[in-house]
Design a protein around this nucleic acid. Structure first.
Lengths: 159, 159
DNA sequence: CTGGGATGCTTGCGGCAACAACTTTCTACA
DNA sequence: TGTAGAAAGTTGTTGCCGCAAGCATCCCAG
């Protein structure tokens, strides 16, 4: 009768609930370390990049922030000394955001608790097979909704 | 060597990417209908509630917004005529947010496209078995990270 | 080598949401 | 019954983010 309880709506709602609920739990650890979720996302993207640095626009591509958003995030992180801007030698328009040693330290201090959080609220709730299947499904969807999530990491000079 | 590529981080990142990426796609339909994601979430929660109404604080409990956030969302929706505030007869502190007919119409106009979006970007990518397994896993996590997601829907008068 | 379009980043502006303080009303306990 | 504390909702404040405009630089066609 009501089209308001279509199973697809429930499915989507479930996914949203899990994602936001999980983020809320994990966020507690972030804020205890004086970071926002976006801050952490930014820092860890840098940490996982070669030389711990990424151009501003690549950072924007990897996170789901606009370039102006990235400008401001890096502003804040730079103000805290966790990140540093560094000019790009081959393109004077571009800047790199580089993780500082303080940034690395902040991250490494944070990560053990973060990993434990992920265990507690996510991975330990599933059997290894369940987890593997779950991740496989996520990858399937990811490849469709986010075709270029790897901006800046496997860019090969076209020389 | 680097603790920055722990599989748990990848797993969590994958989930976050899927959720935000999916939300971004679905959001296009919402904004085409003049609604934000939060607006839609609010309206559909009301639509799925008995008598198409919910107390402000229950609305806050179901969505992940603060009560002040709900106040403002309902302000906006009321300004657009999609929702109406209605005093609670048994508790003069409380208000109900009630879906208006215009609100129902806006929703019903929106939903076909929304369901199609969910198909396109989510459910149709999976086999029925994959989908069922996926939802089962989501439910497992949801029950842990969001134990009382059903505020206000199965509240029984304690008379 | 030069001018116009494209690109990288920043800034002004507006909207949104959380937090805390506040008002009104309810509840419980003496 | 009277009063203290809790609860529902609103409002002021602050910070964050996207959009559009702007500036500097790059690239390329002629």
């Amino acid at each position: 009768m009501d089209p308001f309880d279509d199973p697809r709506l429930t499915a989507m709602g479930l996914l949203a609930e899990v994602s936001t609920g999980l983020a809320a739990e994990l966020g507690k650890t972030f804020s205890a370390a004086g970071l926002s979720e976006v801050d952490f996302e930014t820092l860890i993207r840098l940490a996982r990049s070669p030389q711990h640095r990424l151009r501003m626009s690549d950072l924007a591509g990897q996170t789901s922030l606009s370039t102006s958003g990235i400008t401001r995030v890096v502003d804040r992180l730079e103000r805290e000394g966790l990140v540093q801007r560094s000019p790009c030698s081959t393109d004077r328009r571009a800047s790199y955001a580089v993780l500082t040693e303080a940034g690395v330290n902040r991250l490494t201090a944070l990560i053990p608790q973060h990993l434990e959080d992920i265990d507690t609220w996510f991975t330990s709730l599933l059997t290894p097979e369940q987890l593997a299947t779950f991740l496989e499904t996520l990858r399937t969807i990811r490849d469709v909704v986010r075709p270029c999530a790897t901006a800046g990491v496997e860019r090969v000079p076209t020389s």
